[in-house]
């Protein structure tokens, strides 16, 4: 058995599955806890069922595209670090590009490469350590600082009573920034940004003028579809 085959056997062994499913379980448990808390307090502050349904729909629509991209990168990792670790690492802090390069750097420190025949079980262990240490470093600031920062931002917005405009201009700027950043990448990308923007304006105002509630609810999904098709159809 070659070192790489040995590694793949370890990478797909039962103990690895148990650890990695525990990590995925942790993510799901956290999600359930926060949904439960939200359900409890949503009633108290008068959020309607319709509003929750709308939030879930919009969240769903906007997440499918990016999730598919992660799916595609995950396929690459699947062959190199095994199914359990891929599942765990892409479920937490899972920036696929980061995970792949962290695993690769550990392999390089052992004088080998991912997927190479000399990728031994020790090199695999090094990859596991480096990916997880990086993950821990990303968790420490929110773990220790988020509570403090949250209190600070809350008193700040409360004191100045600027919450509304502050939120709106922060949202506008962050979406505007990401949109412009994408638009700079290539002509089709800028067409996608522009088409999404225009489609949204048209659909939303049509929904308001004609009092079509369903159109307002599906405006986001429709604009994304229209924009993506337009961007990939127009001749380069």
């Amino acid at each position: 058995m070659s070192p790489f085959q040995e590694t793949m056997r370890l990478a797909n062994s039962a103990p690895l599955w148990i650890f990695c499913l525990a990590v995925v379980g942790m993510v799901l448990i956290q999600t359930l806890i926060f949904v439960w808390i939200s359900n409890f307090y949503a009633k108290k502050c008068g959020i309607t069922r319709t509003q929750i349904a709308g939030a879930v729909r919009s969240g769903l629509i906007s997440t499918i595209g990016p999730a598919l991209s992660v799916f595609v990168v995950g396929l690459g990792l699947l062959a190199q670090i095994g199914a359990p670790l891929m599942l765990a690492r892409l479920s937490v802090i899972g920036n696929a590009a980061y995970e792949a390069s962290a695993a690769e750097m550990a392999a390089a420190a052992m004088n080998t490469r991912l997927g190479s025949d000399t990728y031994t079980i020790q090199a695999f262990t090094a990859s596991v350590w480096v990916m997880n240490l990086g993950g821990i470093c990303m968790l420490l600031p929110p773990l220790f600082l988020l509570k403090l920062l949250s209190r600070l931002t809350q008193t700040m917005t409360k004191k100045a009573n600027l919450g509304m405009l502050l939120g709106l201009s922060a949202s506008l700027a962050s979406f505007g920034y990401f949109a412009a950043d994408y638009a700079r990448r290539s002509a089709p990308h800028s067409r996608a940004v522009a088409a999404g923007f225009v489609a949204m304006l048209v659909l939303e105002s049509a929904a308001k003028r004609l009092h079509l509630r369903w159109l307002g609810e599906w405006a986001l999904a429709l604009s994304l579809l229209i924009a993506a098709v337009l961007a990939s159809l127009v001749k380069q």
Binding site: L168, S171, G176, A192, A194, F197, S232
Partner: peptide, 30 residues
């Protein structure tokens, strides 16, 4: 290929959605 354009379109569309609430603020942010 289509997937590549979903995220940029999303940013454009949501910017549009926010812009409809306050066109002036949107112009300044842009």
């Amino acid at each position: 290929r289509l997937l590549d354009f979903i995220v940029p379109a999303l940013f454009g569309a949501i910017f549009g959605q926010f812009a409809m609430k306050n066109i002036r603020a949107a112009a300044f942010s842009a």
